[in-house]
Design a protein around this nucleic acid. Sequence first.
RNA 1: GGGCUCGUGGCUUAGCUUGGAUAUAGCGCCGGGCUUCUAACCCGGAUGUCGAGGGUUCGAAUCCCUCCGGGCCCGCCA
Length: 565
Amino acid sequence: MFLKFKDEVSSILSRAVKKAGFDTDDLALSESPHADLASSVGFKMAPKYKKSPKEISEKIYKNIAIQADSYVARAEMAGPYINFFMSRTFLNETVLRVLLDRENFGNLDNKGKIILEHTSANPDGPLHIGHIRNSVIGDTLARILKRAGYDVETQYYINDMGRQIAVVVWGLENFQFDSTKKKDHAIAEVYINANKSLVDEKEHSPEVDAIMKKYEAGEPEIEGKFKNAIDTCMEGIKESLARMNIHHDKFIWESQFVRTGEVTEIMDQVKALDRCELKDGAMMVDLKDMGIQKSLVIQRSDGTSLYTTRDLSYHNWKDSQCDRMIDILGADHKLISSQLKAVLRILGHKEPHIVIFEFVSLPEGSMSTRRGVFISADELIDEVEKAAFEVVDKKLPDKDVEFKKKVAAFVSIGAVRYDIIRISPEKATVFDWKEAVDFEKQGAPFIQYAHARACSIIKNAKEEGILFENFDPNVLLEVQEIALIKKLSVFERVIDDASRELKPNLLAIYARELADSFNQFYRFVPVLSAEPVEFRAARLALVDCSRIVLANALDTLGIIAPESM
RNA sequence: GGGCUCGUGGCUUAGCUUGGAUAUAGCGCCGGGCUUCUAACCCGGAUGUCGAGGGUUCGAAUCCCUCCGGGCCCGCCA
């Protein structure tokens, strides 16, 4: 709804600009604490027309014409600014729209297929707290893009040809696999032991090299061993992801591109370029003219492929089946991904949009699966859930254990997801246990609680026989009511911004603000006991609207919207 | 050393792409509010040289330059 309001303001303003005898393509509209939309066109046009901003604004203002049934109530001059306000018609229609569109409220009608790759952690151990920053950003973005109308397919790229998986395969033959542990954790144990042994006893290193070579050659026996190792680890990883409400549509093994010959194909394409040269037997691509000083090696001197080469053909393959590619990658991929994009551009292929997120480190330093220095996602969720249970136990002493466990589960997943997504991806963070298990701060539980409150009112209304099939939205006049309706209307703009700029944290902020608006309404405006009685139906309708949009926002964040907690 | 990136109250953080009206919010701190629809809530208060310096501009947290500090990368690893 907000976008319609904005469209209307734009056309009203641009007509006024034209009528005043000016010309501009920038109406300088922005949301502001002073208005629902504010324009600073005066400033923008002052240099061009050599008049004061105020003088220009006044001229434009005098030419503003607003129709009676418009979404725009009025325009006001405030110094050199022109402020626009939402009309009663707009507010009423917003309420009706939410009730009509329900779970689809806020959806946009963008078209096109997007393949979004996220997580793609090496299957050599469990997901740790750095990996799940990738997962949560990727999954939330996928949900936002779906709501924006796109056909989104999520993919997990399994790096099965790297040395670390060969180390796991070697490790499984030389070390005990602890089957009492969750499978990804048991794989990590083997991987850590194997790495330690490879460092201590260098003579084993050629054994790993041999395994890698056999796998690249496609030897059936070794392929079976890789498949077994990876499937084992992935089973654990998928379990952790599912616990966080994250599911991938496809899992793509990088070896498939070697097997089909697509890697050779793209290597030949690159090799045919003038910018390629053989250096000590390895094939290097010069990218200096693309602003990248480091040349990229696409083929080893023994003729085998490298990660980037395979990634090149993976992207080429993705390109053939979608309109747009988005990759979520850690900060360590900055250089390699810009090289990848540059080569794809040179070859005339589509480039992926890359969302880079900065590292999550521990107070003592960075994490490493290989060294066994990490906090796993499972451990994090377990601890947060334990803390959540204690809070639930204290707040709801009369409820049965099953209920408390259920609440602790969705509260903790919500808290973990929200704490990750609220921070801009480009910010490096240091993990803090105290922060992670803190339920006092305004996070997911705050939003979930607002939703549960709304549900509770509706439930009570039903029991008391209060209906809102027929209601008059014109009686929603309290400041908290108007602020709440405006907040509801803005949901689609948030989806629009977040999907265009690939900034999922915008949605996290919005959800919190919406819960905040609802809580203020809840505190100051009685619903079921409202007088006169006609107010009850209208307010109840507004509660239902809030419930719907809170649920939509939470769903888009991948967080459960509970009916009670 | 080079490249990229981040630096906003005690702590965490929004805003920066597209410069504009008193810089966003949370935690913590101080004070207040449960016989009223779930107090995981609400209200009020204190706290800021937007890392430092320079520049562009009528106007800079936002753009440009220099410097300082943190992170990431710079391998025929992935």
